[in-house]
Design a protein around this nucleic acid. Structure first.
Lengths: 183, 183
DNA sequence: CCCAACATAGACAGACCTGTCTGGTACTGT
DNA sequence: ACAGTACCAGACAGGTCTGTCTATGTTGGG
């Protein structure tokens, strides 16, 4: 039978994800994470080389989850873009939304050479390529340029959802998407 | 005659501005600031109640500087909007650009009730109102909605300038502005 | 000339941080 | 039965953080 609680590593990563996202990476200490994950410190350092490694694992997992989520969405071309941004706008309007994990992490890690920043860069390249391919599929006249605009819109949606009054982001992002795609 | 060096308070605030912006608020300690500002610790705490107060002063000054900078720009209506976003795109493409001080600070201070977050909120309200007034002046059919779109674009320009390869932001922001205004 | 205001250097307290280490427990496969 | 692995609790070292304090120096106004 399965163990009564989840794996220790899973518990640590889930707790770290929750706390890092909600309160920021630098303000949450290892002691807090292992206490809430109910894991011994030695166990933590058995699974993760350092706190930075945990941050990397957190972002990498978010990256993989978002890839899987987008891959599972139906449709293609323009319809899929529409669907993706509808989802982004919805998630950004949810209570508890505190911005994009990648943008928040990039703001906390100023050094562009830091491993954390490389995960962020990787994520952005992936998103832009996905948009470019979908635009090409949709017969857009300039898929590369359009993809850059959609990356901008994705960033803007995350910031707005985190900082603006609730309920505004959804329709504003929708209006922007229409404006950018028809242009 | 003027004192040989600037005021101690000015030296502290300038040093804090440089370090907070370049490396982040949480990663820069008071000891580092007073060392680089060549100021005694007691002098620092004479001028600022706490580190949080210094962060607040840093952001408030940036807010005032940006207000003054925009107010000094010539033109009105659509021309001024064009000018403002040209400036934003240029600044975001400069080497050493590390994103918007307000967005970076908001990412580091998760609590929306924190004084730092209130300065950020104030800044955003000001920017949106300015855009709304300029759009109304330009005879835009929906100044309020258009202003929300321009706030989105401002955020996106800051993020892109900080994270994307240099040189990309300027033309992408220009293209987005044309798309959003003609829509 | 003297005093108040502002500056200096730096010790200090108390808290928190990451990461290591010891020692003991429980389960698993052979 | 036994070895190996994963886990637990918690002490500890060495560093950094904010903020307070002492003690001294400089300077300008009355």
């Amino acid at each position: 039978m399965a163990p009564p609680a989840r794996d220790a590593r899973t518990r640590v990563l889930d707790t770290a994800t929750r706390l890092f996202y909600a309160e920021g990476v630098h303000t949450v200490g290892i002691d807090r994470i292992i206490a809430e994950a109910e894991v011994a410190k030695a166990t933590f350092y058995h699974h993760f080389k350092s706190k930075d490694a945990l941050v990397g694992a957190y972002l990498t997992e978010q990256y993989q989850l978002q890839r899987a989520g987008f891959a599972a969405m139906p449709g293609d071309g323009a319809a899929k873009i529409e669907l993706i941004f509808t989802r982004i706008a919805e998630v950004s309007s949810l209570p508890g939304f505190r911005g994009c994990p990648f943008l928040n992490a990039a703001a906390e890690f100023a050094d562009p050479e830091h491993p954390v920043r490389e995960v962020v860069a990787e994520y952005r390249v992936w998103f832009e390529c996905l948009m470019r391919d979908l635009l090409a599929e949709a017969g857009h006249r300039d898929p590369a340029g359009g993809a850059r605009l959609l990356l901008l819109l994705r960033d803007a949606a995350a910031v707005s959802g985190a900082l603006d009054p609730p309920g505004r982001t959804r329709e504003t992002v929708g209006a922007a998407l229409r404006g950018l795609l028809t242009a």
